[in-house]
Amino acid sequence: MSAADARVSDVAYSTYDGPRAGRIAAVWSLARWSSLRALGARRGWKAKLIPITLILLGFAPALVVLGLRALFGPSALGSGGLQAALPYSDYMGAIGVVILVFSVVVTPELVCPDRRDRTLSLYFSTAISRGDYVVGKVLAALMPILLVTLAPPLILYAGNMLFAIHPLAYVERHWVDIFRIIGSGLLIGFFYALVGLAISSLTSRRAFAVGGYLAFLAIPTIVGGVLAHALNENYLRLLAFAAVPIQAARGLYPGYTDRGHLSASLWAATAVEIMVVAIIVLAVRYGRDTG
């Protein structure tokens, strides 16, 4: 830009008479800003480090398997090939801890600061209602969580297709898997988003939310496991809340087995019940006047 191109601009306040977007755009804006901030965007590198590391760990199994296939050929993965080395049905189980930790990191960041800084009254003075706020925050939690529950198996699927001798034939044979992957990713994503937000909505302190979330997932799992073993009662294994969505998602794939002989529909029903309770908690927490 030369000096001749330069111009002095008056930074005056102007009125705006253009189009104004409605509630949907406002909810989307809330979701986008919130999820980006939860991932560390526009914050220091420390805020970005943990989410990005966990996302990379979520992709790691797919990238390792595909990398081995690319470097060493089909023989590197045994006789079953890519599909047998890492079945789609097992992917979520393989990164279950990563999903859990990721949701523990992300979801408190979405709602706790709003309570701590008393920002809710500011949000509710705009086009969004209390219900819109909850929808926006659920979307904000879901979008990053899908980065670890949906994107990695889709990458694996794409790799399997590309490494197949006839890629189009692979898609023809395995097109249903795409829907299973999406269904599995959404089920687990919604579960962790809703549960994480519900627990985080109970406190304005992020540390308490993280502790409460971990306690909610770990304590029933331990208690249920001990009691199931002592009483020889398999139904108590349903208290393993961290395993609930993953087991339910596994039921979407053929050949489902469970060492406790609990059906996939039972796991799915438990997942739905927990999500309903989480929605009720969110409705109660944000349904009343929060000033």
Partner: peptide, 12 residues
């Protein structure tokens, strides 16, 4: 952010 929540397009 508040401008967007009150209906402004992002660029505006």
């Amino acid at each position: 952010h508040m401008g967007e929540l009150r209906g402004l397009p992002r660029r505006v």
